[in-house]
């Protein structure tokens, strides 16, 4: 399993990271999508600690009345953290688009919803002169379990190096309510969807395989010998390999002697 973390130390590092990044941009305000789930709750709590609750806006963007429980949890969380919250129903704009595309399957519809939420977040980012905080965790990033240019889009990501099981540890430390911590993780793309049902494995098993692969630099054979079913290991390996494009910027065809993305290399945090 990924190592047990000292959540107080992790909180300190992540709060500092958020403060540093916002200070560099000369930006005091942050916003994020609040789904009513664990990851966005943790990210909101970190942002509230780093920037002050008044400086954080949580956008609750349900698709109609598909997930009333999640909306209630998100509203309650915003109140508890004392951050600002706005609710925007994305159903009208999504339905309008798909009205003339009835053949679209739920995968396409789900991705469209994730990208509508992204577009709304970035519009509010301009309105607020604020930065969008990403909520993807390490497990999702490694599996590619996210919509590229959708929920993966952000200005900074404080949680991308924490496995899902570690996010749970941090959530308990940050006082995230049990109602959010105990519910089955879901991308919320259609009713009844759960991450673990989608992927086909429990997060504990996924995280153990990933940690042996990534930090442990273990081979397929070594991970199977450690007690994992070969089908489970292959499933995880396949997802990691096939989703590399979601973890890198698109390649630029090189022509000149110095090119963006190849050898014109500057730090992201170059003083602005």
């Amino acid at each position: 399993m990924p190592p047990k973390i000292n959540p107080a130390f992790v909180e300190k590092v992540l709060v500092r990271f958020i403060r540093d990044e916002f200070a560099r941009c000369g930006c005091g305000r942050g916003l994020l999508g609040l789904s009513g789930g664990l990851d966005s709750a943790v990210c909101a709590a970190l942002a509230a600690r780093a920037l002050g609750p008044d400086a954080v806006l949580g956008l609750i963007m349900p698709y109609g009345r598909a997930f009333p429980g999640d909306v209630r949890d998100a509203v309650a969380l915003a109140r508890r953290l004392d951050i600002r919250a706005e609710t925007i129903d994305i159903a009208p704009q999504v339905d309008l688009y798909f009205a003339s595309r009835p053949e679209a399957d739920r995968g396409r519809r789900g991705n469209k919803m994730a990208r509508e939420r992204m577009a709304i977040l970035y519009d509010h980012s301009a309105r607020e002169a604020g930065l969008v905080l990403g909520t993807s965790n390490k497990t999702e990033l490694l599996l590619g379990y996210g919509t590229i240019y959708g929920d993966m889009a952000c200005a900074i990501n404080p949680m991308g190096d924490l496995y899902k099981t570690q996010v749970r540890e941090l959530a308990a430390h940050l006082g995230i309510p049990a109602a959010i911590r105990r519910k089955a993780p879901t991308a919320g793309l259609w009713p009844g969807q759960t991450d673990e049902g989608d992927i086909g494995l429990a997060y504990e098993e996924i995280d153990d395989i990933l940690c042996r692969l990534v930090e442990g630099r273990g081979s397929r054979r070594e991970i199977i010998e450690a007690g994992h079913a070969s089908a489970a290991v292959d499933l995880v390996l396949r997802r990691v390999r096939s989703s590399q494009f979601k973890r890198a910027l698109p390649p630029i065809a090189k022509l000149s002697t110095r090119s963006v993305g190849h050898d014109f290399l500057y730090p992201y945090d170059r003083e602005r």
Binding site: P3, K4, I5, N6, F9, V10, V13
Partner: peptide
């Protein structure tokens, strides 16, 4: 800093 465990 690299590696977070249960330390400070």
């Amino acid at each position: 800093g690299r590696g977070v465990g249960d330390g400070d």
